[in-house]
C-alpha cells in the first residue's frame, strides 16, 4: 500500500513509519520546514529508503495532488502544548483541512490518531471498565485545552464520516511511552521540575508502549472493513500509579513528592475553583472536580476490541515496558 503519513517525524510517527516500511508499504511523509527529516531517514534501512518519500508542506496548505494515488492517510500530527486557540488551529482546523483534501483525492482509508482522553468518565464509578462503548465527553470545554482540541478534532472527523465524506478509523491511544520520552505523565500527578504533586495512587495508568501503539495503527491502516470504528490502544496489564512511581523514583530521577490522597483530590479541586473565582482568576482553575474526575479516577480499561478485530498484540505489562527507559 501507498500510505500518506502526517507527523511522521514525531515521537509516535517515527515508529509508525518504521512499522509500515517494515511491513513492505510505501510511505509518504508530510514534513514541515522544522521537521527532523534526517533523524527519521537515519533510522530507515538501505532496503527501505526507496519506499520512504518526504513531501514538504504544511497541513493547512495541503492539496489533493499530494495525495494522488495513495491508498490511505494516517494522521498522527498534533499539537500537544499551547493555548486553546493554537491547539485548535492544528488539531481541529488541521483535521478539517486534511479531510477536505482526502475527500477530494478520493482516499480510501483515513486513520485518525485521537486520544483516550476523549471519553466521558463522569458516568463511570470507581473501577468500572472504560472501553469503546463509553460515550464521548459532552462538555469538552471544561477539560484541559489539549483534550478539548483532540475531541473537537475527532468530532469533525465523525461528522465527515457520517456525511459519507471520510472512510474513517479512529485510534485512541493512552499515554504513549517509549525510548526518548520520560514515562512520568500527568496521570501520575502534577510535575514541576523536581517536585511532583502525586494525585491519588491507586489508579491504573492508561499507558501504551510506543512500538505496540505503532503496530496497532499499522493494523488500523491495513485491516479491511473497519471503517466507522474506534479502537483503544493500551498495554495489557496496567500498572498502578503508586507502583509506577516507586519504580520511577528508583530507576529514573529523584523527585520531591507531595502526596495528595485520592479522597483529597475532590476537595482540593473545589478549593481551587472557589479561590480562582474569589480572586477573579489571579490563580486559574487548573484543577476542577471535572478535570480531576477525568484524569485520576481509578478505572479499568479494555483493549479487547483492538485485539479481536485488528488482531493486535499489546505490550503485555507496563512495568516491563518502562524498564530501561
Amino acid at each position: 500500500m501507498d500510505i500518506f503519513v502526517t507527523g511522521g517525524t514525531g515521537f509516535l510517527g517515527k515508529h509508525v513509519v518504521a512499522k509500515l516500511l517494515a511491513d513492505g508499504h510505501t510511505v509518504r511523509c508530510l514534513v514541515r520546514p522544522t521537521s527532523e527529516v534526517e533523524a527519521l531517514r537515519s533510522t530507515v534501512s538501505e532496503e527501505q529508503r526507496p519506499r520512504l518519500h518526504f513531501v514538504p508542506g504544511q497541513l493547512q496548505k495541503l492539496t489533493p495532488d499530494l495525495l494522488a494515488g495513495c491508498d490511505a492517510v494516517c494522521h498522527i500530527a498534533a499539537a500537544m502544548k499551547g493555548a486553546t486557540a493554537a491547539l485548535f488551529v492544528d488539531n481541529v482546523i488541521g483535521v478539517r483541512k486534511l479531510l477536505k483534501v482526502t475527500a477530494e483525492a478520493g482516499t480510501k482509508r483515513v486513520v485518525l490518531i485521537s486520544s483516550l482522553a476523549v471519553y466521558d468518565t463522569s458516568g463511570l464509578k470507581n473501577n468500572d471498565v472504560l472501553d469503546e462503548t463509553c460515550p464521548l465527553e459532552p462538555q469538552p470545554q471544561l477539560r484541559d485545552p489539549y483534550t478539548y482540541s483532540k475531541l473537537a478534532g475527532e468530532q469533525v472527523a465523525w461528522e465527515a464520516y457520517r456525511a459519507g465524506q471520510c472512510p474513517l478509523v479512529v485510534i485512541r491511544p493512552g499515554v504513549i511511552y517509549g525510548p526518548g520520552r520520560d514515562p512520568l505523565s500527568s496521570r501520575v500527578g502534577l510535575n514541576f521540575g523536581k517536585l511532583l504533586i502525586k494525585m491519588g495512587g491507586s489508579q491504573r495508568l492508561p499507558y501504551v508502549r510506543v512500538e505496540a501503539c505503532a503496530a496497532g495503527i499499522a493494523l488500523a491502516v491495513t485491516t479491511p472493513g473497519i471503517e466507522g470504528q474506534a479502537f483503544n490502544l493500551l498495554d495489557g496489564e496496567l500498572v498502578r500509579a503508586r507502583t509506577f512511581l516507586r519504580y520511577y523514583r528508583r530507576g529514573h530521577r529523584g523527585l520531591w513528592v507531595i502526596p495528595v490522597p485520592g479522597w483529597a483530590i475532590g476537595p482540593l479541586a473545589k478549593f481551587n475553583v472557589w479561590y480562582s473565582k474569589r480572586s477573579h482568576g489571579q490563580i486559574p482553575p487548573v484543577l476542577t472536580p471535572y478535570k480531576c474526575n477525568a484524569m485520576w479516577k481509578p478505572l479499568q480499561y479494555s483493549v479487547e476490541k483492538a485485539k479481536s478485530v485488528l488482531g493486535w498484540v499489546p505490550q503485555p505489562n507496563t512495568l516491563d515496558g518502562v524498564q530501561g527507559l
Binding site: 486557540a85 485548535f88 481541529v92 482546523i93 470545554q141 482540541s149 473537537a152 469533525v156 482568576g281
Partner: peptide
C-alpha cells in the same frame, strides 16, 4: 467578563472552529 458595565455578546472568526471554542469557554 470581569467588568460590570460590559458583556461579551458575540465572537467572530473566519475559522468558525476558533469562534466556537472561544464562545464555549
Amino acid at each position: 467578563r470581569k467588568l460590570a458595565h460590559a458583556e461579551p455578546v458575540a465572537v467572530c472568526d473566519r475559522e468558525r472552529d476558533l469562534a466556537v471554542q472561544a464562545a464555549a469557554r
